[in-house]
Design a protein around this nucleic acid. Structure first.
Lengths: 224, 224
DNA sequence: ATAAGAATGCTAAGAATTTAGCATTTTGAG
DNA sequence: CTCAAAATGCTAAATTCTTAGCATTCTTAT
C-alpha cells in the first residue's frame, strides 16, 4: 500500500458540498471488496460512476505477454468510471482493491438523474477531471523534458505531500520504477545518486526526506 | 502546420447542440489573431474559456535554456482554458496562433452565468475533458508499454485519421520526434524501418500511407 | 529465534537513444 | 531558373537504460 500518486488531482468528494455528498451517498450502492478482489476487468461494459469510500483501487492492464502493468492508484474520495459515462468507453483498465475497500457505485440511470437534479455535481466532476487532465499533461511534459533524476525527485516530492508520515514516504523501488516507466535498476541507481547528493535517505520500503525545502530547491534548480 | 494530434479527444463544439452553440457564440467575444500571434503566455492570470473558431493554436513552453517545446495543437471547435476555471490555475502554457485564427473568448463572469443557465454546457465540457483525459492516459500507457516503432506507427495512424488529405499525413520528422519525445535521429531511423517494412512511404514534409488497413494490422499485431 | 518472503544492491553485457555534426535532397520564393 | 531555407539521411562516439542474474539485508509471521 504505497503512497503512490493518486494521479495528481484532488479527489472528487473534496469538491462536493456536504449536501451534495449526502445526495451522492443516497444514490449510490456501497460494495465491499477484500484486498485483491477484482472490481471490474478491462473491456467490461458497466457504465456508471464509482467513488472510493475507503481503501484504495489500483488500475492496470495485463499485457499480451502476461505482465501486469499498473497505471494509477486512487484513494479515498476519488472517483472513476467517468469515461464510461461521458466518453462512451468500456472499462479501460482492470481494477483491483488494495486492502479492505468500500466502493460506492452509481449506475448510469441513477447517475443521469442525479446529474440533472444537482448542477453542483457537474462542477465537482469538472474540477476533478480537469485537475487530473492537467496533472497528466504536466507529467507528460516532464517525461519529455526532464532527465530521470529530476523526475524521480519530483515524484518523491509529490508523494511526500500526500504521505501520512511527515518527512517519509512509504514506497518500494519497484513501484517507483514502474510509475516512472523505467527499470528498477535505473531507479536504484538514481536514488543512490540522490542519496549521495544528500537530499534523501533510502530505507527498506520507504524513503526519508530529511529536509523538504532542500529537496524542492534541488528540483527547482533543474526543472526550467 | 502539421497534422499533429489534436490531443486525442473530439472537440467541445461537437458535443454541443445547435442551440447551445448559439448561446456560446452569443456569450463570447471573437478575437482575430494572425499567424504567430501570442494569445497568452505561461503564467498569465486570465481566467476564461476559449474556443477555436477557425485556424489553430499551438501550446508549448520555453525551457530554461530557451528551447521551445510544444505540447499540443488544437484545431477548430476545440476549447482550452478549462484549467483556469475549474482547477484555479494560471495559464499553463504559451499559446500561439497557427495561421489566421479566430478565437471565441468567454471571461469567467460570463462563463459562470452561462454555465448555470445551460446545464448542457457542463455535459459537453465533461465529454470533451474526459475524452482528453483518457487519451492522455492511453498515451502515457503506450509510452511505457510499447517500443518506439509501434508508438511511431500509432501516432502516424492517428494523424491519418484527422488528416485533410486521405492516405497522406503532412508533418515533418522533427515535429514527430518531439511529439514522441525522442530525438529526430531515432524517428528517422524508425520511420526508415517502417518504410522498409512496407507500411508507409516517406516524403518531404509528409508521410504517405498506401494501405491504411495494413498499417492498423501491423500495429494491432504488436500492441497487446 | 528463525525461516520465508520482500526489498535492496550490485554486476556486466547488450540494446536503444542522444548528441553533434555534416552532406544531400526538396521546396518555394524571387 | 536559381538560390536559400527547410527537411531528410547518415555517421560515430558517448551516454543511458535494460535485462538477467544473484547476493545481501531487512521484516514479519510462526
Amino acid at each position: 500500500m504505497p503512497d503512490l500518486l493518486d494521479f495528481g488531482g484532488a479527489p472528487l468528494m473534496e469538491f462536493a458540498s456536504r449536501r451534495l455528498r449526502g445526495k451522492i451517498h443516497a444514490a449510490a450502492t456501497a460494495v465491499r471488496y477484500h484486498d485483491g478482489a477484482v472490481l471490474h476487468a478491462h473491456g467490461d461494459d458497466k457504465p456508471g460512476l464509482s467513488i472510493v469510500r475507503s481503501g484504495a483501487v489500483r488500475f492496470g492492464l495485463v499485457d499480451a505477454d502476461g505482465t501486469y502493468i499498473a497505471t494509477s492508484l486512487l484513494g479515498m474520495g476519488h472517483c472513476f468510471g467517468e469515461a464510461t459515462l461521458f466518453a462512451g468507453r468500456k472499462r479501460t483498465h482492470d481494477a483491483v482493491a488494495i486492502g479492505e475497500t468500500v466502493i460506492e457505485q452509481i449506475d448510469k440511470a441513477r447517475f443521469d438523474r442525479l446529474f440533472d437534479q444537482e448542477p453542483d455535481l457537474a462542477r465537482a466532476l469538472l474540477n476533478a477531471t480537469t485537475r487530473r487532465l492537467y496533472s497528466a499533461l504536466d507529467f507528460m511534459d516532464d517525461l519529455r523534458r526532464l532527465p530521470l533524476p529530476v523526475r524521480t525527485a519530483k515524484l518523491v516530492a509529490s508523494m511526500a505531500n500526500s504521505a501520512k508520515q511527515d518527512g517519509s514516504v512509504a514506497c518500494n523501488q519497484a513501484d517507483l520504477a514502474f510509475t516512472l516507466g523505467v527499470s528498477r535498476v535505473s531507479v536504484g541507481k538514481t536514488l543512490g545518486d540522490l542519496q549521495n547528493a544528500g537530499i534523501l535517505k533510502l530505507g527498506y520500503g520507504k524513503i526519508d526526506i530529511p529536509n523538504r525545502a532542500r529537496l524542492h530547491e534541488w528540483i527547482a534548480e533543474r526543472s526550467a
